Simulated scan of single mutants.
Amino acid sequence: MADEEVGEEEELVDTGGAESETAISPIETQKPLAPPKYEVRPGLGEKFQAQNVRDIIMSTMQEQLMGRQYRADQAPRWAKVIANAVRQRVQDLDMKRYKIVVQSTIIEMKGAGVKCGQRCIWDPETDDYADELYRNDTLFCYTIVYGVYLY
């Protein structure tokens, strides 16, 4: 009885090996895969469109802030609405492989000066930014859009 079990196992192993050999035959050759394409630079005409983005920023700020007076309780909501609207409209430009980052700041005009700085580490050949400023008698809005190319 022990010999029969061993014999059956050997038969299973042998038939499994024969089937796998017939499945892989040297006659069946697959076409070689094309080498992968890695885009490390945007193509001609696909770079960040700074002037179009500036137009979008300015029109969005004017739509949202025209005729409004500064209100401390509403300014954060306005800034968020402007940033989201600008981001959506810039993404509609369909700049492939660009990460779009938008920052909008609204400050009350009281005669004080404002200084701010920004520092970014990026590739100056592919990455860019666009910014615009909107002012009226009571408020000051500065919006900046960064376009960072994803390698």
Rank of each mutant, 00 (worst) to 15 (best):
G111D: 09
P35R: 15
D127E: 03
Y142A: 10
A18S: 14
K37A: 12
N136P: 02
T29I: 11
V13K: 11
K99P: 04
E108P: 02
Q62C: 10
N136A: 06
G147M: 05
P124M: 05
Q62F: 07
Y142I: 10
Q51A: 13
E125C: 05
K37V: 15
S59P: 04
S104E: 04
I56N: 01
E19F: 00
I56M: 08
K96Q: 15
S20K: 04
K47W: 03
D92C: 12
A112V: 10
K110C: 14
I100T: 05
D137I: 01
Q103W: 09
K115R: 15
P36H: 04
T15M: 09
E8V: 10
T22W: 03
M58H: 07
I27E: 12
T105S: 10
E39M: 05
L12G: 09
R54A: 08
P36V: 08
I57L: 04
W78E: 06
L139I: 11
T143H: 03
R68H: 12
V6L: 14
I82S: 02
T60H: 00
Q51E: 15
K80H: 07
A75C: 09
Q51M: 10
E8D: 09
E108W: 06
R135N: 12
S25C: 10
P35E: 13
A83P: 00
G147K: 00
G45V: 00
A112W: 04
V145H: 01
R68G: 05
P36F: 08
A18G: 08
Y134W: 11
G111A: 09
M1K: 06
K115V: 15
A34H: 13
L12T: 13
V86D: 09
I106F: 00
E28M: 06
E21M: 06
T143F: 02
M58F: 08
T60I: 12
M95T: 10
V145N: 01
P26D: 11
Y134R: 01
N136D: 12
V101G: 02
E9M: 14
V6R: 05
A85F: 06
W122Q: 03
C116G: 13
V90T: 03
P36Q: 02
Q69L: 06
T143Y: 00
D137A: 13
I107S: 11
A79S: 07
M66C: 11
D128T: 00
V53C: 03
G117I: 07
P36T: 08
A83W: 00
G17Q: 11
V6D: 12
T138G: 04
K115A: 14
R68L: 14
R87K: 15
R77E: 15
E108C: 14
D128S: 03
A2G: 15
